[in-house]
Amino acid sequence: MNALRKYALPLLVVLALLFPLVVTNAYYQRIGVMSCIFAIVASSLGLLVGQVKLVSAGHAAFFGIGAYTSALLTTKAGMPFLVGFAVAIVLSGLVGFLFSVPVLRLKGHYLSMATLAFGIVAQMVMLNWEGLTNGPNGVPGIPFASLFAFELNTDVRMFYFTFALLALLLWGLSRLYRSPVGLTFQLIREDAVAAATLGVNVTRYKVTAFTLSAGIAGLGGSLFAHYMAYINYDTFYPLESFMLLAMVVVGGMYSLFGPVLGAVLLTAVPELLRGLADYRMLIYGVVLVSVLLLRPQGILSGRPKHLELRPKEGAKR
C-alpha cells in the first residue's frame, strides 16, 4: 500500500501521457480532452467550494464568459488564439471580481442563489445580446487552438495541451493550498468568525478566491470553445452549473484531486453508459444519489481531521 501510495501520482501521469498513444480512437481521445477541460473547470470550483466554502451555483457563467470571449475575439476580431485565451482568463476573472465584491456579503444559501441567478442572467445576455454574441445562432467556425504557428488541430495535440494546463493548474493549486493564503482560506472555511477575530480580512480573501476561481473557469471555457469549434448559449445553462458542483462533491471537494476525479467520472460515465440508451440519464441520477451514500465526503475525502493552524513551511502570517 505504501509503495502504491508513493508511486500513485507518477503512475497516473505516465498513464495519462500514454493515453492518446495507446488509445488511437479519436472518440475516446475526445472524452480524454473533455475530461481534462472539465477537470480544470471543476478544480476552479473546488477551490471555491472546498477551500473557502463558497458554494457557487452559477459557475457555468464564468465558463461561458471565457468561452465566448475567446471565441468572439478569434472569429470576429481575428485575434490569434493566445490573445483570446489570455483575455478570456482576465475578463472572466474580472467579471468574477466585480460580481463578488458586492455579493460576497451574502451568506450560505443566499449566496448560492445569487450565483445561480447570476448564471441565469449571464445566459440570457449570451442569448439576447445579438450584436455581440450572435444570439441563439451561437458562434460557429472557431479556429483550433494554436501556440504561435503550431496548430493544435488533432485530438492528440489538444489532449497534451489541456493535460499540461491541468497539471500546471494542479501544481499551482497544491502550492496555493499549502501556502499561508491557502491556510487562511481553510481557516475561513472552518470558522470564519475565528478568522476575523485573528485579524483576517475575510472578505478580501473570499474575493481573491472568487476572482481566481472565475478566471480559471474562463480558461477552461476558452479551451472548450476552441475544441468544440462551435459554441452556443445552450451549453452554459443552470443545469451545467449543478453538474460542475456534482463533479466537485462526488470527487471530493476538500481534496486537490477530488474535483479532477469527479470531472473524469461524470464526463466519462455518461459516455460509457451510451449503450443503455433511454436509461442513461436515469442511471446517472441514481449514481449521484448513491455515490454519496458510500462516501459522504466524496470519493477522495482529504479533509483534515483537525485544522493545522501551524503552517509547515515556516511561513508566517
Binding site: 458542483l245 446517472y284 441520477g285 441514481v286 449514481v287 449521484l288 444519489v289 448513491s290 454519496l292
Partner: peptide
Amino acid sequence: ISGIGMSL
C-alpha cells in the same frame, strides 16, 4: 447534490 440526482 443528492437532490439534483433525485431531480434527474
